[in-house]
C-alpha cells in the first residue's frame, strides 16, 4: 500500500516576523569622506597645474618615444634584466642548497656570499666590476685568457654586477621556499625510494615554487629598475643611458627622463601580468579551483551582461 504524500504542505499559518521586503533606510552620511576626497582632488589639481605650467616641452616625449636609440636601450634593459635574473636564479638555488646542506664548509661559504653581496650597495659592486682592469690587467681562466678591458665590457660588468648581487637575494628567497615545504613530503618521497636529489627536484622545489614565485616577480621588477644603475656605473647603453644621451643632445633633458619613466612603467606593468599567470600555474593542487585569468573574468562578465539582457 502506498501512502499519498502531501507535497504542498499546510497553508494555514503564514511565517511570522517582519515582512520579507528589501529594507529602504536612509544611509549614514559620511561627510568626512567627502571632505577628504575634495582635499585630495584639490592637491592633485595643484600638482597637475604645476606640471602643466612648468617649462617642459611635452611634444618631445611622443617625438622620441619610439626612437631607434630608445628602443635599442629598452631592448638592452630587458636583456640585461632577464640574463642577470637568470644568473641570480640559478646561482640562488645553488647557494640555497649549499646553505641548507649539512656540509659546514659549503653552508658557511653560502652564508658569507649572502652576507657580502647583500651588505654592499649594488652601485658600488657595479663600479668595482667595471673598473676591475685597474687591479687585474689580464684575465686568465686557464682555458680563456684576455686583456681585462676587452673582457669586462659594459655589458659584462652590468651582467656580473647585477646577477651576482641578485643571487644573494634569490638564495634567501629559495631557502625560505624550500623550508616552507612540509617535512612529511620529503619523508614520503624517501620512503618511496627516491634519493635526496630526486626528492629536491621532483617533490620539494615544485612545491617551494608557490612561495618562491611572488617575491621573485618582485625581484624581477626591481631588477628592471635597478638595471638603470648600470648606465652610470658601467656605461651600459640601456634605457636610461639612451634617454640621457638624447636628452643631452637635444636639450630636452627632463622630457627624456619623463619618457624613461613612462617606459619603465610599461615594462613593469607588462611583467606583472606575466607574474600573475606564473603564480596561477604553481597554485595547482593547493587550491580547489584556480582563480580565473583576467581574460576568463572578462568573458564571464560579458556572459553576465547578455543573461541579464535576455531575462
Amino acid at each position: 500500500m502506498t501512502v499519498p504524500l502531501d507535497k504542498t504542505g499546510p497553508e494555514d499559518t503564514p511565517p511570522s516576523g517582519p515582512p520579507a521586503e528589501t529594507i529602504k533606510a536612509v544611509p549614514v552620511r559620511h561627510y568626512g569622506r567627502w571632505l577628504a576626497a575634495v582635499i585630495v582632488l584639490g592637491l592633485l589639481a595643484l600638482l597637475v597645474n604645476a606640471f602643466a605650467g612648468a617649462d617642459v616641452h611635452y611634444p618631445a616625449i611622443p617625438d622620441f618615444f619610439f626612437d631607434g636609440t630608445i628602443l635599442e636601450g629598452l631592448g638592452k634593459t630587458v636583456l640585461i634584466s632577464v640574463l642577470a635574473m637568470l644568473i641570480g636564479l640559478v646561482l640562488g638555488v645553488v647557494l640555497a642548497v649549499m646553505r641548507l646542506s649539512k656540509n659546514p664548509v659549503t653552508s658557511s661559504v653560502a652564508w658569507l656570499y649572502v652576507w657580502f653581496f647583500r651588505g654592499t650597495p649594488v652601485y658600488v659592486q657595479l663600479l668595482i666590476w667595471f673598473n676591475l682592469a685597474l687591479i687585474f690587467p689580464y684575465i686568465n681562466l686557464g682555458f680563456y685568457r684576455d686583456e681585462m678591458t676587452d673582457f669586462m665590457t659594459p655589458f659584462m660588468a652590468a651582467l656580473l654586477g647585477l646577477g651576482l648581487n641578485e643571487a644573494a637575494y634569490m638564495s634567501e628567497i629559495v631557502r625560505a621556499g624550500i623550508q616552507s615545504v612540509d617535512e612529511g613530503q620529503t619523508e614520503a618521497s624517501h620512503a618511496l625510494g627516491m634519493t635526496h636529489g630526486k626528492t629536491l627536484r621532483r617533490i620539494v622545489l615544485p612545491q617551494a615554487m608557490r612561495v618562491i614565485v611572488p617575491p621573485t616577480g618582485n625581484e624581477f621588477l626591481n631588477m628592471l629598475k635597478t638595471s638603470s644603475l648600470a648606465a652610470s656605473a658601467a656605461q651600459y647603453g640601456e634605457l636610461l643611458l639612451a634617454t640621457q644621451n638624447i636628452g643631452r643632445a637635444s636639450g630636452a633633458v627632463v622630457e627624456m627622463l619623463f619618457l624613461a619613466v613612462i617606459w619603465y612603467l610599461v615594462l613593469t606593468s607588462v611583467f606583472s601580468v606575466g607574474q600573475y599567470y606564473l603564480e596561477r600555474r604553481y597554485a595547482r593542487g593547493s587550491l580547489r579551483s584556480l582563480p580565473p585569468t583576467p581574460w576568463q573574468r572578462i568573458k564571464t562578465n560579458l556572459a553576465g551582461f547578455s543573461n541579464r539582457g535576455g531575462v
Binding site: D182, S189, M194, Q207, R284, G285
Partner: peptide, 22 residues
C-alpha cells in the same frame, strides 16, 4: 638506502600525498 626502501611501502598518518600532482 633509497634502493632498499623501494621494497618497503609506507603509509603515513598525515597521508603526505604530493599536493602538486593528481
Amino acid at each position: 638506502v633509497a634502493a632498499k626502501r623501494r621494497d618497503i611501502g609506507m603509509v603515513f598518518q598525515r597521508f603526505n600525498l604530493f599536493p602538486h600532482m593528481t
